[in-house]
Design a binder for these strands. Structure first.
Length: 411
RNA sequence: GGCGGGUUGCCCGAGAGGCCAAUGGGAUCUGACUGUAAAUCAGACGCGGAAUCGCUACGGGAGUUCGAAUCUCUCACCCGCCA
């Protein structure tokens, strides 16, 4: 059990002078994660389009799956019987699971909407107007979900989420939280943060209870919400840090929910300022290049995001010269690699023209090749940040960022 | 040789007198995607144009009608069945 906090679950190995950013190492029963690190998403115990061998080869240190999805299918008992998430999926490294909290939003008010970044998109009244088509309903005790698979009704509470994640057996699990949008009112955000805090306490209690029966070395992260409101974010962080139930406290913290892109650095900064430096912070659902630089500088240690794989499936390719869509007609006869200079297996053997053709032809290999590249791009980018922090400190980090962003976004 | 069916925009395919520049798919072009209900979604897609505007279009030609992709005649080609 890690909850003693004195145990070396996480250790800081280098810092950005004068800033919150740092490098470190998370130690799990399935290996270490050098931070900052990008953790690719494997929602249903699979990175869509890529094998775990491919993910290991491209340098992924850990993978993140989702408790809600695995609960519905194949069922947490199957994962438990398999020997845990990693065993089940053939992945030898560390694993994370999200609590299902995000589905409170994605199956609820935020369906098919840009959740965090688009403030102009959807007014709260529209969110409310769509209520009838929601497949998730929140109350103070938990969330009632309609399965997106068969429409059946299911109930998630903090206790259920922790129990499910316990069975799934990832090395790092998250407290069940309510994820809101920027369109929610201030009053709603206040109520929601209070609810998430109450749930956090119940998660700790349930974790303590389960650990009493059968010890298992899983780290539990509390999730800081509060949207764009500084006072809510800071208070939420302080409350979670102070929380201790039956001798159990959080091993780390997630930063979640609505984040205005323009204020991401600021918001992450508020939160990390309130968090103990000796515990790791995971920024949920972020991976665009400028966001990663901002968040690492602001003190986030790990990240997960669906963007690299989803974008790849849709033809969007990350490269140091910016993101582009390889399905565009312009690439039909472009026989350069997806990103010249990239060290990924795709770029080592294949061309834009080939991936262009595969994606247009609906060949599954196209998804795989593009996914491998995008995941490698993102992993490597964060790895480069870590190296800069460890080897050159703030000056090196700044140099990397300015050079990278200038080229990525054009001069 | 006879009888019947057919020919629609890049492709397939609806439409059977005005509401049709013409439903739907596909292809094509472009955009979006940040704790995955996402191998998805959205827009454009005859020509010109900012346009509720004009032009050209439903195999060719000739008609009927205020008005035709839709009705008539005819020519061409395609597909069935019977000789």
């Amino acid at each position: 059990m890690w909850h003693g906090r004195a145990m070396s679950f996480f250790a800081v190995t280098a810092r950005l002078e004068g800033r919150a950013g740092r490098a470190g190492v998370i130690t799990t029963p399935h290996g270490a994660i050098k931070t900052p690190a990008f953790v690719p998403v494997a929602t249903a115990a699979a990175v869509k389009g890529a094998t775990v061998e491919q993910m290991a080869a491209l340098g992924a240190q850990a993978l993140l799956a989702n408790a809600y999805h695995l609960y519905l299918r194949p069922g947490p008992d199957v994962l438990a019987q398999a020997g845990g998430l990693g065993r089940f999926m053939g992945w030898r490294g560390p694993t994370f699971t999200d609590s299902g909290g995000f589905q409170v939003l994605s199956l609820g008010a935020g369906f098919k909407k840009v959740l965090a970044m688009d403030t102009a998109g959807l007014a709260e009244r529209e969110v409310i107007a769509r209520r009838s088509e929601r497949m998730a309903r929140v109350d103070d005790d938990g969330v009632t979900f309609r399965s997106h698979i068969d429409g059946s009704s299911h109930r998630f509470t903090p206790e259920v989420s922790v129990g499910v994640q316990r069975q799934i057996g990832a090395d790092v699990i998250f407290a069940f939280d309510e994820c809101t949008t920027l369109m929610n009112s201030r009053a709603y955000q206040e109520r929601s943060v209070a609810r998430t805090l109450a749930w956090a306490g119940r998660c700790l209690a349930e974790m303590a209870r389960l650990e009493r029966d059968t010890p298992a070395r899983q780290a539990l992260y509390g999730v800081v919400q509060g949207a764009q409101h500084e006072d809510l974010r800071r208070q939420a962080a302080r409350d979670l840090v102070a929380l201790e139930v039956d001798g159990r406290a959080f091993d780390g913290f997630g930063i979640g929910g609505a984040l205005e892109k323009e204020r991401l650095a600021e918001i992450v900064g508020w939160v990390t300022a309130e968090l103990p430096p000796e515990l790791p912070r995971h920024l949920l659902g972020i991976s665009e290049v400028d966001d990663l630089f901002a968040a690492v500088e602001a003190g986030a240690d790990t990240f997960d995001c669906v963007a690299p794989s989803r974008a790849a499936r849709h033809g969007a390719i990350y490269s140091r010269d910016g993101r582009y869509n390889v399905k565009r007609a312009a690439f039909k006869r472009d026989f350069a690699p997806l990103e010249p200079g990239c060290d990924c297996p795709t770029c080592g053997s294949y061309t834009r023209a080939y991936v262009h053709h595969l994606l247009r032809a609906g060949e599954l290999l196209g998804l795989t090749l593009a996914t491998i590249h995008n995941e490698r791009f993102t992993v490597r980018l964060v790895d480069a940040m870590r190296a800069a922090i460890e080897d050159g400190g703030a000056a090196a980090f700044d140099a990397l960022r300015s050079a990278f962003l200038a080229r990525y976004f054009g001069a």
